[in-house]
């Protein structure tokens, strides 16, 4: 596996633009922005080293950001419905669970996205996979 510095540099450049765009959206709260920031930094710094075409990596990064934003809106409407239905106690539940729910999509997206990268040769040679 070769270290792909050009992929990393281009990714970082586009990343900066994406993050500026995200932070300029006024309707996104600080926690969601921070979640997206963590996702972007992890994804960029770790997966852009891997084998695979640059367009796949950039595509996955863009899809990740869209998923994150979509997840934020789902949570927002979930909270609105929850407060309307259960009243004020729901706010306490939401304050505690929000960071966990907010972060959940990253792991799921990450695990799916890595299956799109070209497979490296398996090391387990003497046993059935």
């Amino acid at each position: 596996m070769k270290f792909k510095l050009s992929h990393l540099v281009l990714g970082l450049f586009l990343e900066t633009i994406v993050l500026c765009l995200i932070t300029s959206f006024r309707f996104i709260n600080i926690e969601s922005t921070a979640t997206l920031l963590i996702f972007n930094l992890l994804f960029l710094s770790l997966t852009f080293h891997l084998n695979g075409a640059l367009y796949i990596k950039l595509g996955m990064l863009a899809l990740g950001n869209i998923t994150g934003l979509f997840w934020y809106f789902v949570l927002y409407y979930f909270a609105t419905a929850g407060v309307a239905f259960f009243g004020e106690p729901f706010n306490v539940f939401y304050a505690i669970s929000y960071p966990f729910l907010n972060f959940m999509w990253i792991v799921a997206f990450w695990s799916l996205s890595l299956t799109f990268f070209p497979k490296l040769k398996s090391t387990a040679a003497e046993v059935n996979p």
Binding site: W110, S111, L120
Partner: peptide, 25 residues
């Protein structure tokens, strides 16, 4: 952490096992 495991699985040439990473919770 999840990113360490998934990168390890990738370096081992593993694909489908990546789907199970959320279950590590």
């Amino acid at each position: 952490p999840f990113f360490e495991i998934s990168i390890g699985a990738y370096l081992d040439g593993r694909t489908r096992i990546q789907w199970l990473i959320p279950l590590l919770l």
